[in-house]
Structures are given as C-alpha cells and as structure tokens.
C-alpha cells in the first residue's frame, strides 16, 4: 500500500508539472504581449512596462517558468526596488488590478465554492443513485422506462433555464425563498441552506441524470455477476444479496466519478455562480474575464487543475480501499 501511494504521488507530481507548463504556455506564449494581457484594460504604457519588469518578461522563458513554479512552493518577490510586490507562498500570481496576490482572492471565495459543490453533490448522489438503483432493480417496468426517459429530459435542460425558472417561480412569483446570497454555514446554518438550495438544485440536476443512468447500468451489470448468484446460492436474504453483494461493487464506479466531478466543480460551477451571483471561485473567474484581470484567470485555471489532479489521486486511493484487487496495481 505504501509503495502504491508513493507511485501515485509521483505520477501526480508529474501531471501537475505538465499542467503548470501548459498553463504557463497558454498565458505567456499565446498572447501577443503578455504584459498587456496581465496589466488589464486601459493600462498606461508606464504601467505596462512596470508589469513587464515585475513579471521578469525580459528573462529567458525557462527562467520565467522556473520563477513561476518555484513561486508556487516558496513564494516570490515580483520586481525590484520600490515597485517590488510580495507574493507569498503559495504564489498563484499577483493581480495588478486589485493589488493583491491571486491566492488571497481565491481563498476568500473558496468557502462559497465548497458549500456549493458539497451541497450539490449530496443532492445529485441522493437523486441520481436512488433513481438508478430503483430503475435497475425494477428493470423493464413502466417505472424504469419513465425514470429513464425523465433522465434524458432533465439532462438536456440548460442550466440557465433551470436557474432562471427556479428564480422566477420560487423567488419572484411564490416568494418562498430569498434571492440567493452566500451566508456562511457557521454564521447561520438554516439560512445557509435556504439561500443555497436553488443553486444546489441547478447544479445537481444534470449530474443527477447522468448518475442515474450510470448507476442503473452498473447495478444491472453487477447483479448479473456470478458472485451475486453465489450470494443467493448461500441462502442469503435478497436484501442482503442486493445491499451488500450487489450494490457495493456496483457503486464503486459512482464513487470514482463523484471524486472527479467534485474536483472539477470547485472552479467549474462558474455558470451557476454567475447566474445566482454567488461569490465563488467560478464567479471570480468569470468576473476577472470581464475585467481582463489575467493573473486571476491564470491562477484559477491552475488551481482548478490542481483540484482535479488531486481529486484523481483521492479517487484512486479510495478505489484501492474499496476494491482489494486494485491494491496490486
């Protein structure tokens, strides 16, 4: 298990380096003049020159990349003399527009994104896995067909539509819930829920549909496995056959997918966050796009990749813990 862990960690480090390199390439090589991009809209020539100096754009590319990567782990000082700015560990870039390290900006938004992602995930797991299991166990019945047709319909709903219809009906017309804003769980758990419930539904519906279909397939496939038949041949109660011998292996791929989706969601909920004006990392990303605050765009891109790569690692470890056979790999 230790050896497995070390191998996985090494692979993750390698992937992260590739991710850094590609992100760096996108933002430093792709634009005509990175300094203009990083400075943002309506920058004076002097300010652009200052940014150019602070980013060390005169250095060879490899040196710039080196500073960039080491900055993440050790922090760095951008520029020299009186114009030097501190970007402490972990330095994900420095926003010249808001005169703040990108990391600080992102950390302010992280609680919202985590609340949004976790709540939505809980919701879609409940809905999706529940629907999938019921559908699989009642395979071929009218209920199964209705549920599966329903999932196709739900999966095709554009998030904009779901969000705006929910807002219109629940908030504007019925006045059942407040217009969503972020309230910390620690501040007021009840309001945390009532404010986030609409964004959760919006974010969860598509995945609920996808998970329902995947769970159904997986359960049907697993229930046909010889070991499930063995469990019946032992004389176990059907509930135990399904619950213990069938569902556990059937839900393993669901766990895998959940990990990856959660990782992707921390920065990937940008449309939902924009629609509900929730101050999450995705909204930060979308706003920075509009303001052309390129360092923030780059920082979030990198952070989002880090989330995904590390959630892949967590998923692999979880998998090894659930399925003993995977520990050999």
């Amino acid at each position: 298990m230790i050896g497995y862990l070390l191998r996985r960690l090494a692979a993750m480090a390698a992937t992260l380096l590739v991710v850094c390199a590609l992100t760096f390439a996108v933002f430093y090589l792709f634009p005509a003049d990175p300094a203009v991009q990083f400075c943002g809209k309506d920058c004076s020539t002097e300010r652009i020159e200052l940014v150019r100096q602070q980013l060390g754009l005169a250095d060879p590319l490899i040196v710039q990349f080196w500073h960039y990567v080491t900055g993440i782990f050790a922090g760095q000082t951008l520029g020299t003399g009186q114009y030097a700015v501190q970007c402490g560990f972990p330095c994900f870039g420095y926003s010249f527009q808001s005169a703040q390290p990108v990391w600080d900006l992102m950390m302010d938004r992280l609680p919202t994104s985590i609340s949004l992602a976790l709540g939505a995930a809980a919701l879609w797991l409940l809905l999706g896995v529940g629907t999938g299991v019921v559908s699989a166990l009642r395979r071929g019945t009218r209920l199964d067909r209705t549920l599966m047709v329903g999932t196709i319909g739900v999966a095709a709903l554009p998030v904009y539509f779901t969000a705006m219809i929910l807002l219109y009906l629940v908030v504007t017309v019925a006045g059942l819930l407040p217009y969503p804003r972020y309230i910390a769980f620690t501040e007021h758990p009840g309001q945390w829920i009532s404010n986030l419930i609409l964004p959760w539904i919006t974010l969860a519906l598509l995945n609920a549909a996808i998970y329902a279909r995947m769970t159904r397939n997986s359960v049907i496939e697993t229930m046909a496995e010889p070991y499930v038949r063995t469990a019946r041949a032992k004389g176990l109660r059907e509930r135990r056959v399904v619950g213990k011998h069938g569902l556990r292996p059937a839900l393993t791929p669901v766990v895998t997918m959940l990990g990856m989706d959660l990782g992707g969601l921390l920065a990937g909920a940008l449309i939902t966050e924009s629609l509900f004006s929730l101050p999450g990392i995705g909204k930060l990303f979308a706003d920075s796009l509009n303001k052309s605050d390129q360092p923030v765009v780059m920082g979030v891109t990198l952070l989002a990749s880090f989330f995904i790569v590390s959630s892949n690692l967590v998923v692999d470890l979880l998998y090894a813990w659930i399925d003993p056979r995977a520990r050999l790999a």
Binding site: T15, V26, F30, L289, Q294, V297, M298, T301, I308
Partner: peptide
C-alpha cells in the same frame, strides 16, 4: 493528461488570451 484538465476553464483561458 488532456482529460485531467478542467476543460471548460481551460477553454475559456485559451479563448480569452487568443488573438
């Protein structure tokens, strides 16, 4: 590697810096 990217975010990043 391609699949371990947050594709939407990366697409946006690419499109935002593209000439």
């Amino acid at each position: 590697v391609m699949m371990s990217f947050p594709s939407l975010i990366f697409m946006i990043a690419l499109l935002s810096v593209a000439r």
